[in-house]
Design a binder for these strands. Structure first.
Length: 773
DNA sequence: GAGCACTGC
């Protein structure tokens, strides 16, 4: 079966395609269907052969006589010059994309009215004494019936029965996540197969499963279970399975038609996580040949037409939520200093507004810490007595024990202010918030496929995000949201939605997964919002260089081995290569440490000297950052994974535990791909060669004045000051990544011998690349 | 001589 939904498009042009493919093979050594289509597409849109050359050069092809010739030939061979991009059109007479019957709509509207009234009643009905008297289970069942979704049970089931794909819009508090899978179970869907409900986050999958197992009065892991990385709490009995969407993607690699499932419910679809978006495309395809499977797309955004359009006009079913009104205030004029404005607003709310806690959205750790200091200082400066203000902070890198503080009760008569990053927008919910202060900014990652460079920059949030932030104040009562920008800039400067993750990330790993699933032409893959062609082609190019794809774009044996590892392909390649150098034991530790990210070392502001000293102790002998990370892991392991050791060495214990989990998983996977676990503790060269096998495309050589030039696509870069080699200036290095902050910095650097590049990647480097100029 | 939001397999 072919997954190329539009593969018929070029039929009849096979001769042209073959010709283009051959020429591309000659030009760049490999040629996948994507590159063929890309080149033909360029020629179609180009106005001249020179135009084709320009575009190809812009992509990264080296200028040469061959390239010019190719451009001229393809320009003359492509027979037609067209064509406005094909637009998807749908018959959509009423313009709502809603195929539900009128009666059903009315039924919904009626219920929305009812449930709005109910919200007020509910709060006052039950006294604590009464609820105590009831059995816990009875209360649970009663709770189920008071959820907004309850009255929709039958019409919802009917809609699911009648349509293969249904988009469900359920506001927060509607009960969709816990109830719909139970309704499906009660209606008999689980007799045909499991019901999966995917979540973007691990904790959500776990906690929802726990809740549902209580409601159904079964043991967690029996009929109701969850499955997340490192933890599969399911059994043969399991019929309702909550899981992370990434986990379902992994399962898809082993079971491409999801035969053991009868319903897939993709929850929190509006978040548009990379794995959710990939799932959309795959599920749409599965639904085509598995008419018995039901797909539910559940989103909390009112505008679900995009989901509906994508799934061929799937009907939209709306379930009301339970929310309180939120009053939104804008500033009259733009603020000069939003941090200052946020602090002033906190104090104003504290002094003038009725009780209720405050949530402030800031961009990062440093900002939060300085806001905390300023706020403390200002409060101490008040001459007269004011009610106590308890300052709490939360961001993901904050040690767990300090994170817990935001949930602790505070003295009566005092008020809590929580200074938070985006973590409080969706990932965690704090009760008792009545006021939100929103400067309208966040840090967002962007990825430039041309340079392969990531950068993290402060940018304006979207309208959707602003709404989500405001909503955080109206969960337990009416709320207020103070936006530190003008109503006009809200209207004109904020985008409607945050660009989906898939358009902001390095796609190498996604591309390898999709290729492993047998998708032949990724430019035709049905993405809801396609990533740029360039970003897909760069990913293919890298996978070819790594040996994961052959020269016509098919997955190789190495590629299949790599795809088994839940890692960035360069890390997977490093592991696969470690077999040859007999050092897989060391290399999986390094891969685990690298894949944890940059939160291994702990750098408190006031103990920098000690922290730096501790960090450098792992770099003895200028071994490079990769080996240093291995030293950290091994030292920790030698202390029997001691927490105390972590504190003494300024190492974050949470990150180390996560590295251990990943390492254990990788060790298990070695066997699956038939790589022996072998160690060579004293042969650093072997380890470095394995690293080079994964990261050869990230090589750089020393220039004057301590700067470096990357070898393949020349750019000037620098060693990040946190690197152990920052003062060492080795002549040749490989690096894990380049990040753009104040300069272009290479992170995680290791020295190498230039001849290794030619030895390890002869298809990528020639002697002339590494000889002295 | 810097400073990094949030997820996930």
């Amino acid at each position: 079966m072919s997954r190329d939904s539009k593969s018929g498009e070029w039929e009849g042009n096979d001769a042209l395609k073959t010709w283009v493919s051959d020429r591309l093979l000659a030009l760049q050594g490999f040629s996948t269907p994507e590159f063929v289509e890309y080149a033909i597409g360029l020629a179609k849109q180009a106005t001249s052969a020179a135009d084709v050359v320009g575009k190809l050069e812009e992509y990264g092809f080296a200028l040469s006589d061959d390239l010019h010739l190719f451009a001229e030939e393809i320009f003359s061979k492509v027979p037609w010059k067209v064509s406005p991009r094909k637009q998807k059109t749908y018959d959509n007479e009423d313009g709502t994309g809603n195929g539900l019957g009128k009666a059903m709509l009315e039924d919904q509207i009626e219920f929305i009215k009812e449930s709005m009234l109910k919200v007020d009643d509910e709060m006052s009905i039950e006294s604590p004494e009464i609820s105590k008297a009831k059995s816990e289970l009875e209360t649970l069942h009663e709770d189920r019936r008071t959820l907004p979704i309850y009255a929709h049970r039958d019409s919802l089931l009917k809609a699911i029965e009648e349509h293969q794909v249904l988009v469900i819009v359920g506001e927060t508090g509607s009960g969709k996540t816990t109830q719909i899978p139970q309704y499906l179970h009660e209606a008999g869907y689980t007799k045909r197969g499991k019901v999966a409900c995917t979540q973007p986050r691990r904790v959500a999958a776990m906690s929802v499963a726990a809740r549902v197992s209580q409601e159904m009065d079964v043991k967690l892991g029996h009929e109701v279970g969850y499955s997340i990385r490192f933890e599969d709490c399911t059994s043969e009995k399991t019929v309702l399975k909550y899981m992370t969407d990434g986990k379902l993607l992994r399962e898809l690699l082993g079971e491409p038609d999801l035969a053991s499932y009868s319903v897939i419910m993709v929850d929190e679809a509006h978040e548009r996580a990379v794995s959710t978006d990939v799932l959309f495309g795959l599920l749409k395809d599965i639904a085509r040949f598995r008419k018995d499977i039901k797909i539910l797309i559940s989103s909390a955004t009112p505008d679900a037409s995009k989901f509906s359009d994508f799934f061929d006009c799937a009907p939209i079913y709306r379930i009301p939520g339970r929310r309180y009104p939120v009053e939104i205030q804008y500033t009259k004029a733009p603020v000069a200093d939003y941090l200052d404005a946020a602090i002033v607003t906190v104090l104003q709310v504290h002094l003038t507004q009725s009780p209720g806690d405050i949530l402030v959205f800031l961009t990062g750790q440093e900002e939060i810490e300085s806001a905390e200091e300023i706020l403390k200082h200002k409060i101490n400066g008040f001459v007269s007595e004011i009610p106590e203000l308890v300052i709490c902070k939360i961001f993901s890198n904050l040690p767990t024990e300090l994170q817990a503080k935001i949930f602790q009760p505070i003295p009566i008569g005092s008020r809590k202010v929580v200074l938070a990053t985006n973590i409080a927008e969706a990932s965690l919910t704090i009760d008792g918030i009545n006021y939100v202060i929103d400067p309208g900014l966040c840090k967002m990652e962007s990825y430039n496929p041309r340079t392969g460079m990531e950068s993290l920059q402060v940018t304006s949030i979207s309208k959707a995000s602003a709404a989500q932030r405001a909503g955080r104040s109206g969960r337990t009562g009416p709320g207020k949201c103070f936006r530190l920008y003008t109503a006009d800039s809200y209207k004109t400067k904020l985008d409607d939605n945050t660009p989906p993750g898939i358009q902001r990330t390095n796609l190498t790993s996604v591309v390898l997964s999709l290729k492993s699933l047998g998708i032949q032409n990724l430019l035709n893959f049905d993405f809801m919002d396609p990533p740029s062609n360039e970003s897909l082609l760069k990913a293919l190019e890298l996978l070819f260089a790594l040996g994961a794809l052959n020269k016509v774009g098919e997955v190789t044996k190495v590629g299949r081995q790599m795809a088994e590892f839940p890692l960035d392909p360069m890390l997977s390649k490093m592991i696969v290569a470690s077999d040859k150098y007999r050092c897989s034991d060391e290399v999986i530790s390094i891969a685990a440490m690298l894949s944890v990210g940059n939160s291994i070392f702990y750098h408190p502001k006031d103990e920098q000297v000690h922290a730096d000293h501790a960090r450098m102790s792992f770099h003895t002998g200028n071994v490079g950052d990769h080996i240093a990370l291995m030293n950290v892991y091994n030292s920790w392991r030698e202390t029997n994974y001691s927490t105390q050791w972590c504190y003494e060495n300024y190492v974050q214990v949470r990150s180390m535990r996560s590295a251990r989990d990943i390492r254990d998983q990788l060790e298990g996977l070695l066997e699956r791909v038939e790589i022996e676990l072998t160690g060579c503790p004293n042969d650093l060269q072997a380890i470095k060669k394995a690293i080079t096998s994964g990261f050869f495309s990230h090589s750089a050589r020393l220039q004057n004045y301590g700067s470096y030039r990357t070898v393949k696509h020349p750019r000037i870069v620098h060693i990040h000051p946190s690197s152990g080699l920052a003062d060492n200036f080795p002549r040749w290095v490989v690096y894990q990544e380049v990040v753009l902050t104040t300069k272009e910095y290479m992170r995680n650097v290791t020295e190498l011998k230039p001849e290794w590049l030619v030895e390890i990647a002869p298809h990528y480097y020639q002697m002339k690349d590494v000889e002295d100029a």
